[in-house]
């Protein structure tokens, strides 16, 4: 466990709280992609299957896993009940089956082992790398975002970006290297690069997030 890993996990945790806070404070889920949230729930459910047999291995990991699964399920529940009037299926239209299909194909082609758990783990890693696309696509269609929504996206993107120095650290200092997670994590971070740029040049300078 190194500083980058802890900061990455905290950033992930913070992103979820910001999302819930966004819905609570604006009483709306406008600007949030339900498709992306459903993909994340799929990611957590397929990756954290091991919670049933490694529950006591690391209380830290197990509690984070539970928090990610439950909070994302709760977010989806809120979006589909309390805040459903703000859902806009006309804007949230990214073809998610291609993402699920692509991740499934990569998982079958490159798992570490051919076991159900390892193939699902690999699937979850690839799916996570592209799960933000419906959200970014939606952002592009609306052309602007509430500031709190951009903080959510920044924290969510920063989480995987912080895992990259963590992987480098582990590779050089512990001899641990995880090629699937690393390649997918780099792709995931690259997908955020445009967003990071606009967040840095606009939101951090007190301006509204608007696409050029």
């Amino acid at each position: 466990m190194n500083l980058f890993r802890i900061l990455g996990d905290l950033s992930h945790l913070v992103s979820i709280f910001i999302l819930l806070q966004k819905m609570r404070s604006t009483r709306s889920c406008a600007g949030i992609s339900l498709r992306t949230q459903i993909l994340y729930l799929m990611v957590y459910c397929t990756r954290y299957l091991d919670i049933f047999w490694t529950f006591n291995a690391s209380l830290y990991n197990s509690s984070m896993k539970l928090v990610f699964i439950l909070s994302t399920a709760y977010t989806i529940y809120l979006m589909r009940t309390v805040y459903k009037t703000a859902l806009d299926p006309q804007i949230d239209t990214f073809a998610t089956y291609y993402l699920v299909g692509g991740a499934g194909l990569l998982a079958v082609l490159f798992p570490y082992k051919y076991t159900v758990y390892e193939v699902l783990w690999s699937f979850s890693i690839w799916l996570e790398s592209v799960a933000i696309l419906p959200q970014l696509f939606m952002l592009q269609r609306t052309g602007e975002a509430e500031t709190i929504t951009t903080h959510y996206l920044f924290a969510l993107g920063a989480y995987r970006a912080l895992y990259i120095p963590n992987w480098l650290y582990r590779w050089f200092l512990e001899g641990h290297f995880d090629p699937i997670a690393t390649v997918a994590g780099i792709i995931q971070t690259l997908l955020y690069s445009d967003f990071f740029y606009i967040y840095y040049t606009k939101v951090l300078k007190g301006k509204k997030f608007e696409l050029p």
């Binding site: 890993r5 996990d9 990756r47 091991d50 690391s58 896993k65 990610f68 512990e174 641990h176 995880d178």
Partner: peptide
């Protein structure tokens, strides 16, 4: 270093 079984990251 102790090698953890399975995947030790989130």
């Amino acid at each position: 270093a102790k090698k953890a079984a399975g995947h030790d990251e989130l």
